[in-house]
Design a protein around this nucleic acid. Structure first.
Length: 422
RNA sequence: GGCAGGUUGCCCGAGCGGCCAAUGGGAGCGGACUGUAAAUCCGUCGGCUUUGCCUUCGAAGGUUCGAAUCCUUCACCUGCCA
């Protein structure tokens, strides 16, 4: 298996290496031959999100460069939960974890290649921890972890006042054990993860050294934040989910399309497989004519294609063009409009007696309550077929139906929803 | 275990018997300006059958014409002393 010698330079250029163990040693290892590496995903939700996507995409980069991925789902670690600063986690039931493990596994699979010389392997740490006895665990693993060092970790320190359970405190041992096991049984010598995982990553490297005298590598990818430092995708809808049931591909695409200018270059480098030359070209275009938003368009297209496929992305782009095109909606063919509204989400309504605009705003989910819907109208933020609605009691007439059956509802500048009248 | 203080709307945080659906800030939402960007400014920000009604101020009781505000019990948190 020949490997791409420029891999590490590319990762660095993309800003994907926030922390690392000896970088020169890693560079050396990656240039000699196919390195077996692993990256883990804990089932803490029914779907992966944007933060996990960084790891998935990075794993794919490594595989494309000739290295061999082990994708780990945390059937065991997901039962424990790694400590987070905000406080103790609520434990999930075994059934929930099992269900989420399966979902996460299926979400990861399409991104990696499970055939060929450097085929990916899927592993579950439940397989080697479930049967492990407490005595063996404490003797073989626990002995290598000085508590004073564990206490010095930032997350742990931040929790000492508020309190931290022994369960979460022990998490690092489990993740380190994973690395040791994969090192012994599969020759895995590299682990990476998000920068919040740095302590867990080095824990494994340490354990391999102390326990087996072995040499392993680790690096951490950066936490993706907005330019004001806050987390991305932390809006009302929660995280930026990859599961189309939890976040529509349309909403997913729109998220990337609306990324702030200052972040476009960074996100293109992290999340897309566009080459350095292509990205720099886009950045130049963007700097010259920012209003064209070439960066956001490329970003949204690339990432949505990666996650939801080219066909879906084309449908979304067509829908976005139709709705944001600025032209008269009535100028669109009913089929085009119907397809567009299928992407934004639409609600079916009985044609005999049309509800008021306020009721429609609630029915489509654009407003959470009638009060909010009325307020929106009062604020001048409600639109029917791109016409501002002045009267909250307004009821659409049959003349308003586009193509005989569609109403286009909008809240604010960019939240569309369709109403199909039957 | 003793003493003192706290628990308010998405978050922080005022209120300390009626003028309280509850000051202020942040987030969110809408408008203006733009480029479906950022910054800025303005507005809005419990629900409803909306000149009024209903449910909220840790939980349950009580006092009162009337309580987020007073009393009792319970739960949790914080500080000081053991």
């Amino acid at each position: 298996m020949t490997v791409d010698p420029t891999l590490l330079d590319d990762l660095e250029w993309r800003g994907l290496i926030a922390h690392s163990t000896d970088l020169d040693a890693l560079r050396e290892a990656l240039s000699v031959g196919s390195v077996r590496f692993y990256v883990g995903f804990d089932p803490t939700a029914p779907s992966l999100h944007m933060g996990n996507l960084v790891q998935i995409v990075t794993a794919k980069r490594l595989q494309l460069a000739g290295h061999t991925p082990y994708a780990l789902v945390g059937g065991a670690t997901g039962m424990i939960g790694d400590p987070k600063e905000s406080g103790e986690r609520v434990l999930n039931s075994l059934d929930t974890v099992k269900d989420w493990v399966e979902r996460v596994r299926h979400q990861i699979e399409p991104f990696l290649d499970f055939e060929g010389a450097n085929a990916a392997t899927m592993v579950n740490n439940y397989d080697w921890t479930a049967s492990l006895s407490t005595i063996d665990f404490l003797r073989d693993i626990g002995k290598h972890f000085p508590v004073n060092r564990m206490l010095a970790r930032d997350v742990v320190k931040s929790r000492l006042d508020a309190g931290i359970s022994y369960t979460e405190f022990s998490y690092v041992l489990l993740q380190s054990l994973d690395f040791l096991n994969l090192y012994r049984d599969h020759g895995v010598t590299l682990q990476f993860g998000g920068s919040d995982q740095w302590g867990n990553l080095t824990g494994g490297v340490e354990l391999i050294r102390r326990s087996d005298g072995g040499k392993a590598h680790a690096f951490a990818t950066p936490l993706v934040t907005k330019s004001d430092g806050t987390k991305y995708g932390k809006t009302e809808g929660g995280a930026l989910w990859l599961d189309p049931q939890m976040m529509s591909p349309y909403a997913f695409y729109q998220f990337w399309l609306n990324v702030e200018d200052e972040k476009v270059g960074e996100l293109l480098r992290i999340f897309t497989f566009l080459s350095r030359a292509e990205i720099e070209d886009i950045e130049t275009q963007h700097a010259e004519k920012p209003f064209l938003r070439a960066g956001q368009r490329a970003l949204a297209e690339q990432v949505t294609t990666l996650v939801h496929g080219a066909e879906e992305t084309e449908r979304i782009q067509a829908a976005s063009a139709a709705l944001f095109g600025g032209g008269e909606l009535s100028g669109l063919s009913p089929d085009t409009l119907g397809a567009a509204l299928q992407e934004t989400g639409s609600t079916v309504v009985d044609g005999d007696e049309l509800p008021s605009v306020v009721d429609l705003l609630v029915a489509t989910g654009l407003a959470k309550s009638k009060g909010e819907a009325r307020r929106t109208v009062g604020e001048g933020g409600a639109y029917l077929n791109n016409q501002r609605v002045e009267d909250p009691e307004q009821v659409p007439s049959s003349d308003d139906l586009i193509g005989g059956r569609w109403l286009v509802l909008r809240r604010g500048k960019k939240n569309f929803a369709g109403v199909e009248v039957r």
